[in-house]
Design a protein around this nucleic acid. Structure first.
Lengths: 277, 277
DNA sequence: GTGCGATTAGAATATTCATTCCATTTGTTA
DNA sequence: TAACAAATGGAATGAATATTCTAATCGCAC
């Protein structure tokens, strides 16, 4: 055991759990993970409830509390409850003061200000996304993907993260994916097997990556059904595409967060999976 | 009595109490006032405790709950607890909205509904991000990066899009970046040149990619200054990290949108660039 | 003042709960 | 493989808790 746990803050407890995690035994580690992930459940639940949700016997929960130096579950629970109380308890005065100081620090400290700017920018880009994407286009896109044998993904440069994310999700869902990334040779070779039986998802934003602009028309000419995600109807991947998602107001390359296209491809993939049943 | 009180919000309950206050009897009015003034006590206390603090016998508390249409004190207490939960979970509202839309399962399967679900989930994850990331950590992270000669990026599996995005932005800003992707050989070889003069940004979420968990400790042991972005203090890339960004409530791999980490790395990179001037 | 219904307080009760204990299993060392 | 220590699961236990019941009190009309 260890020193008295009389007045411990929630954050201190988190630190203590993380520190001790390795030294704990299997069951206790499992509980540690659950407890850090579901602090609200611990704060409000009974031993039996927490035990059931974390998949361990009740006695293990009590042993876990003991291992952390508490007299029992109830004692440990008190710490988790302070977290809930702290969320609402600060009187209006204190909350106002906190916000004001946060505002000040945001103005003063550069990195935090940058983060809040990107967050609010991302927020508005999400709003724009849900307004500008229509059900008809999404339905058409999932129809194309559901008929495809292999799904080819073309997204280079700044759009590459979107392509890799879509590749990851589609593969998790059991789809056959070819990610055109140009490693070990030319992209042309990687895409050579694409036919009318397959499908292509192309992603490109200003300034449109040259290889993307070059390869896209070739695949379209070969009759590959195509879905484009881009920021302008004048982009090089619009002409010939069967479905076009236009995401407006993408900032310049270094400043764009990719939040909107990431969300879109995710919805496409999951929507495809759900529609398949 | 009155209608069923199945799912009542805290605000609705407050309204109901205020409305009925005049019709209640002396003792019950006294309890009503206490309860509105000390909602936290009611949420976390026992009948005996609430009774003592409000200066009434325990049975009066139960009668009060009955008078409001609840089956008993415990039932009424649930409503007061939702208030505490709402205080710490910014995603609470969004989650409720999502559940509501999920109820209509047929509609929930349509691609458009899927998109709006992901959008609202992304929104709440952004709120959580801006609340959980503190200026201190961001400052520490940019300090590490600004001193680094080369910046090594480690993010595999589902986190790879985040790593590639960070790589892209950092390179646009003129930083020297090594993206550890394992192409053409082992990741160990790619990371072999990392020294104490460099820096490492590691990104990993459940289930933690094995190669990441294996490589991370090696780089830490070699003294490379390290920034970790993960979803739990128990993840394998926390121990030894100089700065840890914990992004909670990441859904299961196929459903996570990566919106929060994408925003975070973007802010880190741009913040670094701005601070350098 | 008297009688009557509503209200109340406190004891009794039945339930739920945290905790402890012990038999069994698991992992480890010789 | 055998023996030992650590850890685990589940039942038993005793405390704490919400709820109910009943006798007493209060307020009020007549």
């Amino acid at each position: 055991m260890n020193k008295s746990q009389g007045a411990m803050s929630y954050d201190e407890l988190r630190g203590a759990i993380a520190q001790r995690h390795r030294a704990l035994s299997g069951r206790l580690q499992q509980i540690a993970e659950f407890v850090l992930d579901h602090p609200t459940d611990v704060a409000l639940g009974t031993v039996a409830e927490v035990a059931q949700r974390s998949g361990v016997p009740p006695s293990a929960i009590v042993r876990f509390a003991h291992a952390l130096g508490f007299g029992g579950f109830t004692e440990m629970q008190q710490v988790f409850r302070t977290r809930l109380v702290a969320g609402v308890a600060p009187s209006y005065k204190a909350r106002l003061a906190r916000m004001k100081s946060e505002e000040k620090s945001v103005l003063g400290r550069q990195p935090a200000a940058v983060l809040s700017r990107f967050v609010s920018e991302a927020q508005s880009s999400l709003v724009t996304l849900s307004q500008s994407v229509h059900a008809r286009e999404l339905d058409a896109a999932t129809a194309i993907l559901s008929k495809a044998r292999d799904i080819y993904l073309l997204g280079l440069g700044g759009s590459f993260p979107v392509a890799t994310h879509l590749a990851y999700v589609l593969r998790k869902l059991g789809r056959r994916v070819v990610l055109l990334d140009g490693t070990g040779g030319s992209i042309h070779e990687q895409s050579h097997a694409a036919t009318v039986e397959d499908a292509l998802v192309a992603i490109s934003f200003r300034n449109y990556y040259p290889d993307t602009a070059r390869l896209f028309p070739e695949l379209v000419a070969r009759g590959v059904p195509t879905i484009s995600i881009t920021d302008s109807l004048l982009s090089p991947i619009v002409e010939g595409a069967h479905v076009v998602f236009e995401i407006q107001d993408m900032p310049e390359p270094a400043l764009r967060t990719l939040v909107a296209p990431m969300c879109l491809v995710q919805a496409m993939a999951i929507g495809l999976d759900l529609a398949a049943d």
